[in-house]
């Protein structure tokens, strides 16, 4: 019997954590032990999550790639699948397919500076990368996170930053500052104000709303990063994850299979402009 790649593996929600308004992190455990043990992913990859009766949608894996017992996704309530997911409680069933796609260029970035730029919930696919870098800290040079959110309330993984700051630089900004906010305010590009890459050996990785990626990419190019060192994760309507359904195709490339991580030099060759 051939295994059917459309059939989700049954899994249970182990825990649910509030991150921000309408945003939660779900820790998910695949029931079958064998499948669970063979569930390996690379930071930046995604899964297709089923909420039975509501459908299936793609979510980036946000937990550390070193953990095999379970994995996490961070979800903002948006469409029907996330609405259904938000109705579920700990112990409820979901379905999982994947992991799918191509993640961040871990190998290429070694021995280089890494600039991580995230907007809003776009930090989700970058969290496993940051955790991977921290675990292999000696292999990477200067590592910096620029993170922007709409308001201080919308910042996700609030409890992680202190831990991360022990290993990497973290700078935050919010579009709309509130009274008790003492940090930067404005779009994430304000964090570039005093930033100059210390050497040519620098990679940047980013994920956020298309408009953010557009301006950040312009900024990065203007400070001299070559296109092949600017990476981003694209969001598309990825229904099957295997390059069959055609919905995520952008400029002839399947974002689900060949992405979702692309570098700017690849994207420049797309006929359609995705960022």
């Amino acid at each position: 019997m051939v295994s059917n790649p459309y059939l989700p593996k049954l899994a249970k929600i182990e825990s649910i954590k509030d991150e921000a308004p309408e945003t939660k992190t779900f820790k998910i455990k695949i029931l079958d032990e064998k499948i669970r043990d063979s569930f390996n992913f690379s930071p930046g990859q995604f899964i297709e999550l089923t909420v039975f009766g509501y459908g299936e949608a793609p979510f980036s894996i946000t937990s550390s790639p070193m953990v095999h017992e379970n994995f996490s996704i961070t979800v903002r309530k948006m469409g029907n699948v996330t609405k259904g997911l938000f109705r579920l409680r700990e112990g409820d069933f979901v379905g999982v397919r994947g992991p799918f796609g191509r993640g961040w260029p871990l190998e290429k970035m070694k021995e280089n500076d890494v600039l991580v730029i995230a907007g809003g919930i776009g930090l989700a696919p970058l969290k496993p990368l940051i955790e991977y870098i921290i675990l292999h800290r000696k292999m990477y040079n200067n590592v910096k996170l620029f993170y922007g959110a709409k308001t201080p309330k919308d910042i996700i993984y609030k409890d992680m930053f202190d831990e991360w700051r022990k290993y990497i630089d973290v700078e935050l900004t919010v579009d709309f500052a509130e009274k008790d906010w003492s940090g930067h305010s404005g779009p994430v590009t304000v964090l570039f104000k005093n930033f100059q890459p210390s050497s040519d050996n620098i990679y940047s990785v980013q994920c956020g709303p298309p408009i953010m990626m557009h301006f950040v990419t312009r900024q990065l190019s203007s400070i001299g990063l070559p296109p092949e060192k600017i990476y981003f994760s694209l969001e598309r309507n990825m229904k099957c994850g295997m390059g069959f359904c055609g919905k995520c195709m952008t400029g002839g490339r399947y974002v689900c299979k060949e992405g979702p991580v692309f570098n700017y030099s690849e994207v420049k060759n797309f006929l359609e402009t995705p960022v």
Binding site: G53, Y54, G79, N80, K83, G84, R87
Partner: peptide, 10 residues
Amino acid sequence: KSLLLEKFPE
């Protein structure tokens, strides 16, 4: 059915 499941009926 969608409304009973609190789904947005597309």
